[in-house]
Amino acid sequence: MLLKPLAERRSGRFSRERPAPHETRVRVPEAALTRDVGGREFVAFVVDVRYGSKWQEDAIVGCAYRASGNLFIERDNEYFPAALLLGKQVNAVAGVCRAAPARS
């Protein structure tokens, strides 16, 4: 959903943008679903990229919502819709991708 459009967008061009990674992998650190403050279930994910022989972990950090399928990515401790990576001008969304405090 995210990696394919990203790969299509990058094309190893004559530009100062970061070159396309030689390999990309997605990890899900915790398989269990988490609930945010609104009670919606999401799962966190990270994307690692490889340049040469070296893997750079956590190149993209984000979360995916189970019911809606919405993807968010983290930038400067804020979460934005993943469309940001595709160049869309979007604002940070408060309260997403953060686990609700545990009830005592």
Binding site: R9, R10, R13, F14, S15, R16, E17, R18, R75, D76, E78, L84, L85, L86, G87, K88, Q89
Partner: peptide
């Protein structure tokens, strides 16, 4: 000429090019 051609997306006011997205916010 190549750089100019590659830089044309910078003038698309709807979509930000990857070079700019990398720097956001």
């Amino acid at each position: 000429a190549l750089i100019t051609a590659m830089s044309l997306p910078y003038f698309d006011f709807e979509t930000l090019p990857p070079f700019v997205v990398e720097k956001l916010p």
